[in-house]
Structure formats: C-alpha cells, structure tokens
Write a protein that binds this DNA or RNA. Sequence first.
DNA 1: GTCATGTGGGAAAGCGCATTCCCATTGCCA
DNA 2: TGGCAATGGGAATGCGCTTTCCCACATGAC
Lengths: 345, 345
Amino acid sequence: MAASTLSEVARLAGVSLATASRVLNGSSRKPAEDIAERVREAADKLGYVPNAQAQALAKSSSGLIGLVVHDIADPYFSAIARGVQEAARQQNRMVLLASTTGTPADEKEAVGAFAARRADSIVIAGSRSVREEDKQGNAELAAELDRYCRNGGHVGVVGHPVVGATAAEGYHVVEVPNEELASGLAEELAATHHGGFLIIAGPEGLYTSDDRVRGFQRGLADAGRPAAEVVRTGFNRAGGFEAGKALAERIKGSSDRLCIFAVNDVMAIGVTAALRPEGVWIPRDATVAGFDDIETLRDFRPALSTVHLPLEDIGRLAAGDPDTAPISGTVKLRRSTETPVESQL
Amino acid sequence: MAASTLSEVARLAGVSLATASRVLNGSSRKPAEDIAERVREAADKLGYVPNAQAQALAKSSSGLIGLVVHDIADPYFSAIARGVQEAARQQNRMVLLASTTGTPADEKEAVGAFAARRADSIVIAGSRSVREEDKQGNAELAAELDRYCRNGGHVGVVGHPVVGATAAEGYHVVEVPNEELASGLAEELAATHHGGFLIIAGPEGLYTSDDRVRGFQRGLADAGRPAAEVVRTGFNRAGGFEAGKALAERIKGSSDRLCIFAVNDVMAIGVTAALRPEGVWIPRDATVAGFDDIETLRDFRPALSTVHLPLEDIGRLAAGDPDTAPISGTVKLRRSTETPVESQL
DNA sequence: GTCATGTGGGAAAGCGCATTCCCATTGCCA
DNA sequence: TGGCAATGGGAATGCGCTTTCCCACATGAC
C-alpha cells in the first residue's frame, strides 16, 4: 500500500506542507479560500488519501475501537457487534475485530494486539470464567488490561469484570442483570407449571451461566418450589443437544411434566432438537425456556420462552455510547412453556 | 493512549534504538544473547507494547484487512466474517469491520476509510446491485476501489464484481455459482413437485437475487416446466414475511399446491412465518425452499430445503487464503418441500 | 605483523503527518 | 505616516519505529 503523500499534494499546489495539512485535515486554522481550493484540486488530481496511521502517530489517537468476541458467527455476539459498530460509527471510529476461541489466553493476545494498535478503547464481550484451567490465562489477561488502562485506554466488559483486573480508571463493566432476570423467569414459570424443573447449564465457573442458574433457583425458592436439578454441558447448541439426548428416556419414562431451563437460547434450541426425534414434543411432553431472545431464532416453533436482552444496546453501552439506558431485560413467555389445555391433562 | 516507547526501553537497557528494535521486533539481524536478554528485561519492566501504527508507518504495511458487510448481525454475513477472521488470523493480520446500510455510497466511504488506514486488503461481502438509484454510488465506489488497487491494495469481492470497477491488478472476485445451484435446486424440486412454482425474489437489479431467479427459471425450463411467477420484495426476513402475507389467501383459495422458492433462507423463514398464522402449513398446503443454508436456521421446523453455501470458505477465499477450494454448493432437500404421503393427497 | 574478512552495535535518515513557532503582510488607529 | 495587533503561510520539529549505512573491533590467513 503506497499512495501519494501530503507533501506531493503540497508541492503540486505550490504551498507548504503545513498549509496542505490545514486545508485537507480539518485544523483549527483555515487557510484562505483560494489557496484551499488549489490544495483541494491538487489532492483530487493525485487521488490523495490521508494516511491514518501517520495521522494517528502524529496526534496519538487512532480512532480505533477493539472488539473481542468468542465467535463472530454466534448470533449472540454478532448482535452485540452490531451495537458496537453503531456506536463506533457515531463516534467516527472503526471497529477492529478479534475472534478468540474463548480462552483467556487468546483474549489476552487480542488485547495485546489492540494495545499495539493503540485502540482508543476495547470491548470484551465474551463471558468471564473462574474455571481452574483458566486461572493463569485470566491473570495474564487481567495484567494486560491493567496495563492498557494505565496507559490511558478504555475498557468495556460485558457482564462481569475480568477476574483479577484491578484498574479503576477507564475500566467499565456493562452490568447485565442475569440473576434477577432468571429469577423473574423462574417465578413466572412457576406460576403456571406445577411439575418439576431442570436446569441445563454451561460449565461450572462461567459467570453468565452461573448467574442465571443461581437466579433461577432463587426464583423457584421464592415461589416456594424445591431447587431444580442442574445438568452441566457445553454453553452452545451442541451442549444443549447432548443434554437433550441424555434426557429423552427419562422424560418419556416419567409421568411428571418437566420444565427445562436452558441457560441460553441456542442451548434451548439444541435441547428441543434433540428431544424431537425421540418423540418428546415441546410443550406437550415437556416445556423449555431459554435466555437471550436471539433474533434469528424468533421464528422457531414452538416459539421459545426466553428472557429478552437488548444485545445491541449492550454493545453500544460497552463501546462507550453514553446515551444508552442501563441494561434491563424482559421475560417473554411463549409457546414452548405453555400449559396444555385442560382436556390434555 | 500513551505508553512507553522503544527508546525508553533502549535507554533503560543501555543499548541503541536500533538494537532494541532488532531484539524486540524480529529483525533478520539477531543481537548477542546477553544484550537481547537485557533488552527484553527492560521491555518487560516498562511494560513496553510496540506501537503498531509507527511500525506500519516505518515498514509501510499495516497488517490490516478491511471487511465490508451490510449488517454484521445478519447470519449470512457473520458466517462470512468468521471465514475472513480465520484467514486473517492465519496471515497474522487483524480485521477492520465496517457495516454499511447496503448503499454503495456507504460502502465507498468504508473503502475510503480502509484505504486511509492502509489496509493490506479489502473484502466486500455485500451483494452488488445495478439498480438505477445506485448508479452514482456504484461509480464512486468503483473509482475508490480502482484507486485503492492502483496504490497496491488487494480487493476481494464476494459474488459479482463491483459495477464499473476496471482495476485488473489486485482485484479478485470469489465466484459463487448462484445460477447453477438455483437451477439444480429447481430441477430437483421439479422431480417430485407437480404443481406450480413461485419465486419470491429481492429487488430487481440485485445480482445475487437475479442470478438465483434466472437459475431457477432455467432449471424449471430444463425440466420442461413453465416459468415461475416472480414476486419482488425486500431481500430479508421482513420482505419474505410481507410476501407471505400477501400470498396466503391465494394459496388457500387454490387447489394447486404451490412450491415457493425464496431466494434466501431468511426470506424463506419469513414466508413460512407469515403463512403459519393464516393456517397455511408447510409442507402440507404449500412447500418452501430457500438458499444459503444458514446454520442458525438448521433447527427450524419444518426443516428448510435450501442450497448449502460454504460461507466460511467464501470469506476465507475473499480474504486471500489460497488453500481454499473454489466455491461450490449443494442442494439440500428437507422437510419443507417434502411431497405429502399418498393418504393426504 | 599486516591486511582482508566478518561480526555486531550505533548513528541517522526517513515513513507521512500535525503542530508549534516564527516571520512577513496587512489593516487599523492615532 | 508610524506603530501595533491581527492574520496567515512556511520552516522545522517530533510522533515511534525500521533500516541503511557506517564504524569499531575481532578473527584468520598470509
């Protein structure tokens, strides 16, 4: 990538470098109109494109905002990414994307790369974890973030603080009331469902999952119900599918109608998909609820009961857009948890 | 964003700038081990993070790859984005993201921004259009791309060339055999479906949509079937939904079982969703096929007949990954176009 | 002991731009 | 008309780094 430079433009226009810079890149000093016109003409003729790298170097601000997600093709993350993108657009910045496999070590690397590019701020969208195997990775990630913040960077984290991060300045957590919402979901479900409950959760130590589990149990307790059994599996569709497969026989063998809470929508879809070929129908033989209210899944049938999360707003907020309200969600009861009509009872 | 600089590291280590650079940033000349160690220690103590902007400026290569999509939250684009991301990772580059609203004017702006950042290459994933209202935008976009290519940039476009782009050097189109695949789909459908066909297409002038329509018609013709009626609507779920609503009465009033081809999956989902509350069931009262085979939609029921496209590979290929095979797709017939069993006829 | 050869560190010149000074004009008032 | 402030263009510096070129020194052969 080479291109014509500002000094070439200046020479062609017969002005100094300083003047050319002032004309083309919005300085506070406005050269006279006739000169400006000459410079603009020269720039146009040469097809001048300012070198943002050099500009960034000169005024030490890159106009970049880094986004760390586990998987950009996951609808949860891509919805957040859209929000971040919008905020960036408003702030006249560009989004740098890094997909990690979800391990803190990868995330640390991504943060390092963003820091190297002198991103003005960094958004971390993946769920935090306290699992033992992530311990060292978390520590390193935290150190990297601390350093970045100390150097004047801004960090927005979705959900939970990065474990071990201590930087106060520039560190910003977008709180997602997972626990409260899950509790609310449990209470609403308990109002119409009289059988047992079961939770399909992600691996222990994943904050988002743990919060939702805790909240759901609390909601059940508040409704005077016994705690639900918790099954742990992968935090994705495959995990839900697997859990569903394992559950099928049990559901078929029992007369109790089980209400299954999968801690996110794609897991709920996985469960449902696994159950269907086994002849277990939702909501006839069991009911299922998810969490997130993923847009692409809205047309799924039976319509999934879930908790709506304003993912775009979350992204916007994490990217530092100030005029977004704090995050709240809404319980959405749909067909997948409907009580069967009396005649079927 | 300020941070400690290389010269600070050099001073602390008691070596010259050149030596420090050689130690820390992989030069061909390797300083002696004891010196190198001293430099590394100093860098570590200062928390040195190389300034990628300055590096890019000095060696004129940014390590950036720009990605232009219409909407990152659209599963079609996010799947491509994943591929681009993977390729970038392999090439040790980072992805710069730009979402546009789909108008060429926006895309032009994005390309300009990428050029300013001296991105090594640019991937344009949105569908090309020849609509009259896009004419000027297209021309400007083409000019911007040409300029970028002349300056040594690489461009990868998914599907069709940008209208009017003339740069030969560095311009690379990932061919997607939309027409052939749509034709194949039509033929396979015609083998079992004996009623009429109808196509729900995007706006006229959208290459992707037009190609698929043309291919489908050709396939029908090859199978000795009359051409299908074409309904034009938005190229998204909303468009499909609208078309579905408009179609419901007609389907209910006719004894002929219609086979509906929506030119992409989300439109097909939209159609199905619109038809369902009207009492028109798929595949009982009509059949529906889509195109793309979006992963998130796989669990949709009735399972959608569609054409599988290796979206990740497309992204990888557009991002310049050479070890990806040329793009081909596969027709996937599923439940949504199944012929009813005889008893139901 | 001398000279060719090689090794490895340092000085300095940019990369493309913003910005701070500096200086030549001009306009204005006394 | 002289003097002062304001105006606006230009030279030069530096942002943080890579890389070329130079030089000091060590090594080996003759």
